[in-house]
């Protein structure tokens, strides 16, 4: 197999038939009850969340949901959340804290939606609040980048005790197109940008931004989804167990130090 470039990975991470958050949720957990709404304004379909069981243990799950075709993508706003999505996510995380359920998040977004309504309803405030609150939630949080992790829109559900990436997922400050248009004044230089951004799982592991890479079969997770699911499940079970052995104080301290050192 020839070497896969960073740009190849960007393409793989964006593939329409790549598994999306709900595919992971429905395969990893025995039960899943979806919960809706932010209790302020609405229900953002680009973020899904609810309660599930992981080998019989109740957990709270949250994911950025893209579609697999145009119709689904229209419904999910291409996985670009508005403030309501982030506020729903926070509501569910606070609920998890109350009932002492670990939290698992699935990151897959081109970024927070840059629209008028999103700005009017405080996109910046919603993301900021999640970052602040997630850093102090007293239950284990594991975040998995499954596809595209772009900008503050990804980080807003990404402050966890463990941050994990699938082998072909990407995680970056902005999409390569956005990056190229800002730094090279030319969005068509996205390919060149991708090679320089250090956005692959390998790069991010080396930089100390992520804790673990989950291997994928050739050409992406969809080609042997069962193996990928088993690997993720094993990782989740092991790490939730380890994290639950810590006192709440220690858990929060470690999470603080993790991001403090970046």
């Amino acid at each position: 197999m020839s070497k896969i470039t960073a740009w190849d990975k960007v393409q793989l991470a964006r593939e329409l038939d790549r598994p999306k958050a709900l595919d992971y949720i429905n395969s990893l957990f025995e039960e899943f009850i979806e919960l809706h709404g932010d209790r302020c304004f609405g229900d953002d379909k680009s973020i899904v969340g609810g309660i599930a069981t992981l080998e019989g243990k109740p957990v709270t799950v949250i994911g950025e949901q893209k579609g697999k075709n145009v119709k689904e993508n229209m419904e999910r706003n291409f996985g670009m959340p508005e403030p309501e999505g982030y506020r729903k996510a926070l509501r569910l995380m606070k609920q998890a804290e109350k009932f002492k359920r670990p939290i698992i998040t699935f990151i897959d977004t081109p970024g927070a939606y840059p629209g008028m309504g999103a700005e009017e309803r405080g996109q910046g405030e919603a993301i900021a609040r999640n970052l602040m609150e997630m850093s102090r939630i007293k239950v284990p949080i594991i975040c998995i980048v499954i596809g595209e992790g772009s900008s503050g829109g990804a980080l807003a559900i990404g402050v966890g005790d463990r941050v994990v990436m699938l082998e072909n997922a990407v995680y970056s400050i902005l999409s390569p197109e956005g990056f190229a248009s800002i730094l090279y004044k030319d969005s068509s230089k996205a390919k060149e940008a991708a090679e320089n951004m250090k956005l692959t799982a390998n790069d991010l592991k080396k930089l100390g931004i992520i804790d673990k890479i989950i291997k994928e079969p050739e050409n992406g997770a969809q080609n042997d989804f069962e193996t990928v699911i088993n690997d993720i499940k094993k990782y989740l079970v092991q790490n939730i167990k380890k994290l639950e052995e810590l006192t709440e104080k220690k858990l929060i301290e470690q999470r603080y130090e993790k991001f403090r050192n970046m």
Partner: peptide, 26 residues
């Protein structure tokens, strides 16, 4: 906003500063 030239490390400064504010609040 976050500084493009430092990529993902800049993004992480958002989490770092916000976590510190959470501590200040406590």
């Amino acid at each position: 906003g976050a500084r493009m030239q430092e990529g993902i490390v800049s993004l992480m400064q958002m989490a770092k500063t916000s976590s510190a504010i959470a501590k200040l609040n406590e």
